[in-house]
Structure formats: C-alpha cells, structure tokens
C-alpha cells in the first residue's frame, strides 16, 4: 500500500542523505521525496511517498525514527489528510492542438504559465492521481517535458506536526 510519511528533520547538512541512505541500504522503495525549509528555520519538512506491506511500513517508520536527525515523524495516510502535488508540463501547441490543450486545461483547472508560438507550459495541481489523469488525456506526441514536485501532505484538523 502507498504511504505518505511526513518528517521534521534537523536542518543539518547530510540529514537528507541519512534518509536516502537508509532507504537504499535497506531496500525500501521511494516513490517521491520532497524537502524544504519551514516557518521554523531549525527544521526542514520532508514528505516521502513509499509503498510496502504493513510490516515493511512499520519497519520504515521505526528505522526513520531511529535516525538522530529526525525530530518528528507521522504517517499521514493513517488518518484523514490532504495531498497535493504540482506538475509543470511543456507541450507542443500548434494548429488545432492549441485549443484542444487549452480546453483540457480548463477541465483540470490547470493554468497556462507560458506561451510561445509553438508551445505552452502548463501548471497542474492536485493529487498524484489527478496529475496522472491529466497526462493520460494529453496526446503523448505533443508532450515535450514533464516535471513533478512529488507529493506534499498535511493532516486535516487542528492537530499539527510541529516541534
């Protein structure tokens, strides 16, 4: 099963490599991984999407908790949560496909960020599934480049993951 694990890491050099190294050393999957500073300058927030059986996920969270740089950790898929990912897609947009792509953008509430005579850059935000669906409906031949942020997640309600 797919799990989204959110972590607060000490903002130390090498903290990211400890997490990445743990996953490669123990043979766990990483589907996506994002890390960036938060409002608290001493920590970074990492969101890691992984998959595995219940036992494997239990080991992953235990092993991550053992890392000295991990301050707090939460498997946000264990309860109600919001998940978002951002994707930028560069497509060839000429002739009829200019209108067609624009219509698809409207349906997916995507934005065109940049326009040239022959291309668009489109921004789509949503769950991973929605982004996959958007790519599916695009004509593959016009896709020039795709860049995805990896998933971000946050639990619903007042309860917060913070130091």
């Amino acid at each position: 099963m797919r799990h989204i694990i959110s972590m607060l890491l000490e903002n130390e050099p090498g903290a990211l490599s400890r997490v990445a190294g743990l996953f490669s050393a123990r043979g766990y999957n990483i589907e996506s991984l994002t890390v960036a500073p938060t409002e608290d300058a001493t920590v970074s927030r990492m969101t890691l999407v992984t998959s595995g059986s219940g036992e494997i996920i239990e080991q992953i969270t235990k092993q991550l908790n053992k890392l000295v740089d991990v301050v707090k950790l939460l498997d946000i898929t264990e309860s109600s949560h919001v998940e978002r990912e951002i994707m930028l897609v560069k497509v060839r947009a000429t002739g009829d496909s200019r209108d067609e792509v624009k219509r698809l953008c409207d349906i997916f509430r995507a934005h065109v960020l940049d326009v040239t005579a022959t291309s668009y850059i489109i921004e789509v935000t949503g769950t991973g599934e929605k982004l996959d669906a958007f790519l599916d409906v695009l004509d593959r031949r016009i896709i020039l480049e795709v860049v995805r942020s990896g998933a971000l997640g946050i639990g619903r309600g007042e309860k917060a993951l913070r130091v």
Partner: peptide
C-alpha cells in the same frame, strides 16, 4: 531497547 528490533 530498540523499537526497530521488535517485529523486524
């Protein structure tokens, strides 16, 4: 003492 040792 190590939770990760349990049920590994």
């Amino acid at each position: 003492i190590d939770p990760a040792s349990i049920a590994k």
